[in-house]
Design a protein around this nucleic acid. Sequence first.
DNA 1: CTCCGTGCAAATACTTTGCAAAGCG
DNA 2: CGCTTTGCAAAGTATTTGCACGGAG
Lengths: 141, 141
Amino acid sequence: MEKRENFSRKRAAILRALQEARNHPSAEWIYRQLKPRYPDLSLGTVYRNLGRFCESGQVVSLGVVEGHERFDGDISPHAHLVCAGCGAVVDIPREMPGEEELAAVSNETGCRVSGASVTFTGLCPQCVEREKQDGTKEDHL
Amino acid sequence: MEKRENFSRKRAAILRALQEARNHPSAEWIYRQLKPRYPDLSLGTVYRNLGRFCESGQVVSLGVVEGHERFDGDISPHAHLVCAGCGAVVDIPREMPGEEELAAVSNETGCRVSGASVTFTGLCPQCVEREKQDGTKEDHL
DNA sequence: CTCCGTGCAAATACTTTGCAAAGCG
DNA sequence: CGCTTTGCAAAGTATTTGCACGGAG
């Protein structure tokens, strides 16, 4: 399964790029990232493989931010914050609902709860900083 | 502000439909819902007003589910569950992160956290039931 | 030869937007 | 009359899909 070169050269690259990235990238971002090294890489391939990764659970979709679906190669349970200023997605170390809680919710609601995601909204550190520097800021009209 | 009839006849209808709906509808759903009563209602108008409601905070966007953005007219803090079976969005009564926690996260991360959302994944009661009835179920190929 | 993965481009599908017409005070 | 809101349709854009090619066993 590691034999065939082209079997997964690009696929592996996509997965690795995703896992190494800290910015919870979009398909487009990964594409641009890999394009120089794989000049004949196609955006469709990136989408196809991202879909595959999500199905197999190797990758998690964070949902659509500003029109672009974002992905996370880090599947350990953690929360995120979506920056209203720049659209960045940052990891938030935080206790996530555990199995017990999912079970509890299942019992209370009649649903079969299998997963949970916690997403904060606000400003990322850079945008907080920028806003400070801008002083009274200029976007007030 | 309550005077002009057509000033907001449709807008009000859209907002009301959204607030009365229990299914966290999409723009399309609201459109179909209102179309019989407002035959000349346009889908664009629904989108425009939903955008306006979101900005003004009268309505909350729940993000994109199966390609359609879903909205919630109930802005009281609560969690949701997105059904993997049918795409339904159901309310989950659950304690949400309070101001103290948002502040704590802000301090720990350097972000300015202003809001939070909790979304569970799983099966809605109907789909749980359906799966039971289907017995060994038929979608195994 | 057969299968899997891919490039390319056309096709989808949701949402946004421009513009002129219409409502209301 | 002036401002807001809407209908309609065109435009926009992210994502998906069909098809044929290329590499590997």
